[in-house]
Design a binder for these strands. Structure first.
Length: 427
RNA sequence: GGAGGGGUGGCAGAGCGGUUGAAUGCAACAGUCUUGAAAACUGUCGUGCGGGCAGCCCCCGCACCGUGGGUUCGAAUCCCACCCCCUCCGCCA
């Protein structure tokens, strides 16, 4: 979230940023609350100071044995109590409202982000590879998968419901191969691998910004009120919640494979076919903690790291930078990587790499110290990126590597992970 | 799930109703000493918010001793609930 002081001192800039993001977040509402809040704080604290002084005095009188004077002073302080507690209550309400307002405000876009209202104003940065031309009618993965007995949509529905799938045989193996290939590749690049819980508590979801605003997108357990994680970013970032890191450790580079769970409220009707949008999907995630001066360089290298997976798999992709109106809640800058998907006859998002600057660090209180450079501690910058969405990679491989006879060639780099398998045939 | 013990500053660990934001030790930082280092000595050494201020490494105030409530003129200290950790028992992949 944004710092109250920053909003107070830069209202025009914040207002412009909110408009560029299509956010209805109201700077004026904040300023009004903030003014009221600070006035109340001043009042309450003045009374508290009085009370504290009087109480100390009572203590002194008691020790001197002046009981009568002490009793008189007690009566005086008792009067203060009433006005303090009613003011305190009012202050708490205003304070909660202010905090909630701040917590529901999105991040401010970095200056390098193109201004735009929607998706089609995102800007293509680079393109890699050439989409294949087929000399036969290529199938979509939602037809290929079942034909090869790799994906079972019907049984996914039976076991859990719509937008759940079951992978079987080569399908299950390919999924596992992709996960291991991605993790190994990131580990080789210096990312530390983690294995986090699939459930997380409210503080954790708050830390990365899913709460309080996006609770509807999350699955929640009825008894404990725990949430199924929508991405490993949540866990990897919160590993260091309420911690102060040592500057020399930075940047920290983490990776993890997890299943991700999204209720996707409001997403019904989009990408309904195949593996593209599911309630549960696998993803290998990258998260970094960086010094502010280095974070945008780290965003570049993280994006390249994600692209490396596609290059090794020889899947054509392009990179776009999201415009202000299309960015996620916590991001200051986001690159999307889109893979070529023949069934869409277009590029489709397969990774999203963001620099959240200090937006999450402030919520989650993740700081670092570096005595040789500054006194005290500062918020780190947090970054996250998919490396990659496994299901969409799965789909891209089936579609891009299919052959006229309905079989699928296994990309070279995956063969060791599939015990040498070169071609996937119907089982 | 049951019984018992415990949660205090970066770490360890006192305090158990009053002037304690908190003893002491370690670590860290600055300085003295030293050719340099170590040792020794001296000093500094929590966070957040509000106010003063053009601004601050400055000053004042408020809050914070797991979390939330309560008792009291006054709570780290007493009471209640919850969370977490440890030990033992039970259960279990």
């Amino acid at each position: 979230m944004l710092e109250a002081k920053f909003v107070r001192e830069n209202p025009e800039r914040v207002d412009a940023a909110m408009k560029a993001r299509n956010s209805t977040w109201d700077v004026q509402e904040f300023l009004a609350l903030d003014t009221k809040r600070r006035a109340l704080i001043a009042q309450v604290e003045e009374l508290q100071a009085k009370r504290n002084a009087a109480s100390k005095n009572i203590g002194a009188l008691m020790q001197q044995g002046k009981k009568d004077e002490a009793e008189a002073a007690k009566a005086e302080v008792a009067e203060l109590k009433g006005s303090i507690s009613s003011l305190e209550q009012e202050m708490k309400e205003i304070d909660d409202a202010t905090t909630h307002l701040l917590a529901t405000g999105p991040n401010i876009p970095d200056e390098s982000v193109p201004v735009g209202r929607e998706e089609n104003e995102n800007v293509e940065i680079k393109k890699w590879g050439t989409p294949r031309t087929f000399d036969f009618e290529p199938l979509a993965h939602w037809d290929l998968g079942p034909a090869l007995n790799m994906i079972d949509f019907d049984r996914g529905v039976k076991l859990a419901g719509s937008s759940f799938v079951v992978l079987g045989g080569r399908g299950a193996q390919l999924e596992r191969a992709l996960i291991n290939f991605m993790l190994d590749t990131h580990a080789d690049a210096g990312f530390k691998e983690w294995w986090p819980p699939s459930l997380a508590n409210g503080d954790t979801l708050y830390g990365t910004g899913q709460l309080p605003k996006f609770e509807d997108d999350l699955y929640k357990t009825a008894d404990e009120g725990l949430y199924l994680i929508p991405t490993a970013e949540v866990q990897l970032t919160n590993l260091h919640r309420d911690e102060v890191l040592e500057g020399e450790q930075l940047p920290l580079r983490y990776t993890a494979f997890t299943s991700c769970f999204r209720e996707e409220a409001g997403a019904a009707g989009r990408d309904t076919r195949g593996l593209i949008r599911l309630h549960q999907f696998d993803k290998v995630e990258m998260v970094k903690f960086a010094r502010p001066e280095e974070s945008f360089d780290e965003l570049e290298s993280m994006t390249i790291q994600a692209e490396k997976i596609l290059e090794l798999l020889e899947l054509p992709y392009r990179r776009i930078v999201l415009c202000t109106g299309d960015m996620g809640f916590g991001a200051a800058k986001t690159y999307d990587i889109e893979v070529w998907l023949p069934s869409y006859n277009n590029y489709k998002e397969i990774s999203s790499c963001s620099n959240c600057v200090d937006f999450q660090a402030r919520r989650a209180s993740i700081k670092y110290r570096e005595p040789q450079n500054f006194k005290g501690s500062r918020f780190v910058h947090t970054l996250n990126g998919s490396g990659l969405a496994v299901g969409r990679t799965f789909a891209a491989i089936l579609e891009n590597y299919q052959q006229a006879d309905g079989t699928v060639v296994v990309p070279e780099v995956l063969r060791p992970y599939l015990r040498g398998l070169e071609v996937i045939e119907p089982e």
